[in-house]
């Protein structure tokens, strides 16, 4: 029986495996990382990618070589050599992967506890997910917004929850995601290191509007953040020009997340803008048109699926049974003021 040398596929494994591992270690396979904790995650990712690349080369080299060297020649009807197994070999490819797994597992454990370790002088931000928008609260400043603004190099402790169904808080550039679950408060910590604009994307299927459940995230300098805080604190006070009812409506539409999908300045978004909406003739998806009056607004908030404006998706959650009559009045009153 002829013994076949493993020399060629072994050489091939290293010729292929080492460049592949180096390539996977260095290649920018993920979007840029914007938080300190992400450095460790990216390190783990690259490590696993490099190992996986080498294993890939190992298998492909041996299988590829076999397919060429051990193909049946035409006319050859004999069987191959009856090798039934080799215990030392089986033990080797049981134990070596086991050792690699323990190594990666220890590193993974260390990174996991490291990124979740509480830090001194953290700023707490409370996040609430609901169909299909996000609300952010800064307890230290008494601010509630639909846009997440964070000072760079400031450790943040996010306390996340949801009011209706499960959502998931994820900014890809912040790496880790954490589910927001009704009845639970989950905690995740990030220290932003890179000034810029990002998008928060809900990562847990939450219904028809899941794909559009986004929020703007800005990482800004410390001074810019304080400026923003001051601005927001001013903005939270009811404006003088609004009647008390309309002012209440404005506050509600912010808290309930209406403004995540409906703009008040005429710019396009997931839902129709509220600017100039009242009194307008809206074309509907079924080809008819409707006059936007109080009755229409009332139906559209309580049962949004009944009359869909042309060009928009039926994704708004129904507010029937979730809004008191007074609150509904207030929101409609506020929409009326947006001429």
């Amino acid at each position: 029986m002829k013994r076949h040398s493993v020399l060629i596929p072994t050489v091939l494994t290293f010729l292929l495996g080492i460049p592949l591992a180096v390539l996977l270690w260095k290649a920018p396979l993920l979007p840029p990382n914007a938080v300190r904790e992400g450095d460790l995650v990216d390190f783990l990712f690259r490590l696993i990618a490099a190992i996986a690349g080498f294993v890939f080369a190992l298998i492909v080299s041996f299988v590829g070589y076999s397919l060429i060297a051990f193909r049946r020649r035409p006319g050859d009807t004999s069987d191959g050599p009856p090798m039934h197994g080799n215990v030392p070999l089986e033990v080797t490819w049981t134990v070596v992967p086991l050792l690699v797994i323990f190594g990666v597992g220890f590193l993974g454990t260390w990174v996991l506890f490291e990124i979740d370790r509480p830090k001194p002088n953290e700023m707490t931000v409370r996040v609430t997910g609901f169909q299909f928008a996000w609300l952010f609260e800064y307890p230290a400043y008494g601010i509630r917004t639909n846009e997440l603004v964070l000072p760079v190099e400031q450790p943040i402790k996010f306390e996340v929850t949801a009011t209706d169904v499960i959502h998931s808080f994820w900014v890809p550039e912040f790496r880790m995601k954490i589910d927001t679950i009704p009845g639970r408060i989950n905690v995740k910590r990030y220290t932003p290191t890179r000034i810029g604009e990002y998008t928060l994307r809900c990562a847990e299927l939450c219904g028809a509007g899941h794909y559009a459940m986004l929020a703007r995230v800005r990482v800004v300098s410390g001074s810019e953040f304080l400026q923003w805080v001051a601005q927001q604190s001013g903005a939270q006070a009811p404006e003088e020009t609004l009647s008390p009812l309309a002012a209440r409506g404005k506050e509600l539409s912010d808290q309930l997340g209406c403004l995540a999908c409906h703009t008040t300045d005429g710019s396009p978004s997931v839902g129709p803008t509220w600017k100039g909406l009242f009194g307008k003739e809206e074309p509907l998806a079924d080809g008819t048109t409707v006059l936007v009056d109080e009755a229409y607004l009332r139906t559209s908030i309580l049962r949004p699926g009944e009359q869909i404006v042309a060009g928009y998706q039926n994704i708004m959650p129904a507010y029937e049974g979730r809004l008191s009559d007074e609150d509904l009045e207030a929101i409609i009153e506020y929409i009326k003021t947006l001429k």
């Binding site: 298998i59 049946r72 050859d76």
Partner: peptide
């Protein structure tokens, strides 16, 4: 750890297939 452990018996299958092909008449 338990999840990564699945890789071990799976790897045994994979390597055994490679060894089955080795020297055969494919």
């Amino acid at each position: 750890f338990t999840t990564m452990l699945v890789a071990v018996p799976t790897g045994v299958k994979f390597f055994s297939w490679v060894a089955t092909m080795w020297g055969g008449k494919i």
